[in-house]
Design a protein around this nucleic acid. Structure first.
Lengths: 109, 109
DNA sequence: TTTATATGCAATCATTTGGTTGCGCAACAG
DNA sequence: CTGTTGCGCAACCAAATGATTGCATATAAA
């Protein structure tokens, strides 16, 4: 089973988990309190996130604290980079257009 | 069936399609040439991308040219924003740490 | 008109997914 | 020691997913 980070963020519950553990480490039980589904369902999501290398974990007694491995999220950002370039180009083209319109307007006056 | 953009980019084939139609509009057949799967499979992916509002389409005779609705990709970027803030904070903290170390070093000298 | 091409839509199928329940085990609390 | 709590793992299940084949339709070419 090969999973990647795009699979990881495909599920809404998983995205919510990611947001929750982005700031602070949390235990599976604490996470489960935030959702309607069972603890085991959350546990499965955690497992998937872990497979994707998205988690740091720290054991404290019988509790396990999971936290988001933030730098992994940058992979998504890197993939987006190619499109960001495109839409920034588009914006600068729009800027040029606006500049031209502005220019024409000043000629009218 | 409610699908969002995160579902859309979950599939590798769909991501590849997105990249292909980001720059130029393409027909389903032209797209299918780039993959091992059948034309109908690609057609289904197109359908899904369309449901997610990711596509602009233009009919030209019997051909349909699909292109990426680039601005829709910014939704992903917007979601990432919250994490970007976090990792930028982390970087600036690292910068502070480096500054402190540098400071200490200069005191040594 | 006849034929070929480009596409969409429906039915079908194997696999994956997200969920559940039940169980076992380690770590605290009594 | 005994009971309770926090977790992970396995089995199971309904629904969604990605793919295929087959068919219908519209446009272009012969």
């Amino acid at each position: 089973m090969k999973r990647d980070i795009f699979q990881a963020i495909a599920d809404p519950t998983r995205r919510a988990i990611i947001v929750l553990i982005a700031a602070h480490a949390m235990t599976p039980n604490a996470l489960a309190d935030h959702f309607e589904v069972s603890r085991q369902a959350i546990s499965k999501h955690i497992q998937i996130l872990n497979e994707c290398g998205l988690l740091d974990q720290e054991k404290a007694g019988r509790e396990i604290h999971y936290q988001l491995k933030l730098e992994k999220m940058q992979e998504i950002d890197m993939w987006l980079e190619q499109f960001r370039k495109l839409w920034e180009t588009r914006y600068s083209q729009l800027d040029s257009l606006l500049a031209i319109l502005q220019e024409e307007k000043s000629h009218e006056a």
